[in-house]
Design a protein around this nucleic acid. Sequence first.
RNA 1: GGGCCCGUGGGGUAGCUUGGUAUCCUUCUAGCUUGGGGUGCUAGUGACUUGAGUUCAAAUCUCAACGGGCCCA
Length: 472
Amino acid sequence: MPETKVKKSEDFNEWYNEIVELADLCDKRYPIKGMNIWRPYGWKLMNHVDRLIRDEMIKTNHQEVCFPLLIPESYFKKEEEHIEGFGKEVFWVTHAGLTPLEERWLLRPTSETAMYPIFSLWIRSHTDLPLKTFQIVNTFRYETKQTRAFIRVREIHFFEAHTCHVDFTDAERQIQEDKEIADHLLQKLSLPYVFSKRPEWDKFAGAYYTISIDVLMPSGRTLQIGSIHQYRDNFAKPYEISYETEKGDHSFCHQTTYGMSERLLGALVGVHGDNKGLVMPPEVAPLQVVIIPIIFKGKEQTVLETSRTLQNELLEENIRSFIDDRDITPGNKYYDWELKGVPLRVEIGPRDVEKNALTLVRRDSGLKKSIPITNAEQMIKTELKDLEHILYTNAEKLLKDNMHQVLTIEEATQKTGIVALPWCGNKDCALEIENVLEGNTLGEPIENAGCSEHCPVCGSPAKTWMRYARSY
RNA sequence: GGGCCCGUGGGGUAGCUUGGUAUCCUUCUAGCUUGGGGUGCUAGUGACUUGAGUUCAAAUCUCAACGGGCCCA
């Protein structure tokens, strides 16, 4: 069996670096830090993830838009907290040719400040609401810390939904919908996750509150793959997004955003991959089945014909497949496709054809079996479903085994992954725990209110649980 | 912001201390061979980040720039 040089369990970070390049996802040789090249296979994969996101957006009546990349400084500066949060990591455009610009432009780090002045033009009446938009674009953030493919980059492939509502309640309803969207999507990616409400000092710049969506990587560190923000009317006021109510008054909109990025791909790689390479959930696998004809001189005809017949049958079932008839040895092809995480491999050789059968190999378990060629596409469909299920189950176990709820800092230091401790609500107490655990606050669980224990730092009655983790 | 380390074919490397012909593996190309887990053989392409300095001579020593990585705040 082929293995990566670095084992996933021994040095996850190194393993990750090795795998993203070996599997042809990206090329990191571009000479600007944090700006990598999407290679064809990686880009296909990302497109499938985007497709799932679009499907969810369309189902929930969001409209796709595309705003300009450049934002005038004056637009950007309207909301104070927002500038403070992003100011240090924006790229500026100062010249056009040799001429200095009268007003500087910036590359969007996110699109609130590009969109909202325009929203204020679009929205006149309560009948224009809710306004539900989204776009999938690249955003730019000048990261100074260490970059990592798909996880911390300077040019980010980004999904952002922006909505405007008549009031806080309707915006809250949107946030419920966003949570459902996240759930559907992450199920399809076989990625179990946790929602946490970020503490006040760690929320998105300008938000009323922020819900983060985190997955747990096998290294024990969390990866935030999305966030949902309730803005209330924090942006609507400076950007003057108001509407005329039924009664003829004027009122500010309440807004939400929902963002996700190429980190989803990072999570797919990290959570499902193994020492043989990627393991892709069938929903997003660029190829769901690879067909390898076993060619012997003189017998290639029947083997290739059988392969083509199967491919056509798979096509009718909307299963993405490819016949690898390259002139290299079969073993070589196995390695290749295992590295790329193709969920199922079908081998068709003279032996199979004779028996009216084909050989089916699972990427997750490596198990091989011979199945009848009649109705093979149905069997394959079932196997794909089962594989998706197994991926989810394994990932869920990883998450559950690494989520802990404890009462003292002492106990917390013994744990890996996500640790929840009682919290009194005082920032200093949380920061103290961050220090000792060498981790960060993730936020409070959103599903439960309250905690009847005591803060492990100051001893006061706890208001809630607070989660801590080392994160990417 | 402060400190440290590193730049050699597409990838991984040896050589640097003590200056002189750049090593090996892999990939790639061509041909034959082989083909149910990386087939074998033959031939071939391809590199010292850039600039300045020291020197008869620099991958090697010095300085700088650019690029990459790590640690601390």
